[in-house]
Simulated scan of single mutants.
Amino acid sequence: MGKLLIWVIVILAVMMVMRIVAARNSTRHTTRQSPPKPPARQPGQGPVESMVRCAHCGIHLPRSEATLLDGKTWCSQEHARLGER
């Protein structure tokens, strides 16, 4: 009975050491990889466009859809008329 208990302890110790070594190898492997690439653009999508913020309500919208008056961007003519908040 004593020999069986020693073998169980030895096997558990070996398994624990193997698990620790595997965990260290996996963390070393992930730190050496290059950073992930951004997702590829799908065909048919337009060019990337910068976003601007409305000076009145704070909503973000594409630059091509914004109204530019007096050096500030607005989401609509109405908000440009109302002015900055």
Rank of each mutant, 00 (worst) to 15 (best):
E49Y: 09
L69R: 15
C75L: 07
L4A: 10
K72F: 03
V48I: 06
T30P: 14
V48P: 00
R85G: 13
W74G: 06
H56A: 14
T73F: 09
T73Y: 14
A23G: 08
S64A: 12
N25W: 01
R19S: 01
S50Q: 00
M1T: 03
L12N: 02
G44E: 01
K72N: 08
C54H: 04
V10M: 10
C57W: 09
V48E: 02
D70S: 08
V17Q: 07
T73G: 12
G71C: 08
M51Y: 05
W74V: 09
A23V: 08
L4D: 04
R32V: 14
V8I: 07
E78T: 05
C54L: 12
S76C: 00
L5E: 05
S50P: 00
A80G: 01
Q42H: 06
V52Q: 00
M15H: 07
Q45K: 15
R19G: 03
V14G: 08
T31Y: 07
H56V: 04
I20C: 04
V21F: 15
V14K: 03
I6N: 10
H56Q: 12
H79E: 08
L4P: 00
Q77S: 09
V21M: 10
R28H: 09
V48D: 09
H60I: 13
L68C: 00
Q33K: 14
R41E: 12
A13M: 13
P47V: 07
I59Q: 05
P39R: 14
Q42K: 13
W7A: 14
P35C: 06
P38T: 11
I11Y: 09
R19V: 01
E49F: 05
P35G: 09
A22I: 04
L82E: 12
V10I: 03
N25L: 06
V52F: 02
T31D: 02
T31G: 09
M51G: 01
I20W: 05
T67W: 15
R19L: 07
D70T: 04
Q42E: 01
A13E: 05
P35F: 02
L4S: 08
Q42N: 01
C57Q: 13
R32C: 13
S76L: 00
R81C: 10
A80Q: 00
V14H: 03
Q77N: 07
L69Y: 15
R41K: 15
T73H: 12
I11V: 13
L69T: 14
V14T: 04
M18N: 05
A23I: 07
C57G: 07
L61C: 08
L4E: 03
P62S: 04
R28T: 04
K37P: 01
V48M: 05
H79D: 03
R85T: 14
P39D: 14
I9K: 03
S34V: 04
V48G: 02
I6A: 04
R53V: 03
K3G: 14
V52N: 05
M16Y: 05
L82P: 10
P39M: 14
H29Q: 11
P38K: 13
L4M: 08
L69K: 15
Q42C: 02
R28G: 05
L82Q: 12
G83F: 12
R81N: 06
A40I: 09
M16E: 10
W74P: 06
G83N: 10
A23C: 09
N25P: 03
S34L: 08
P47Q: 06
V10E: 04
M16T: 07
L68A: 00
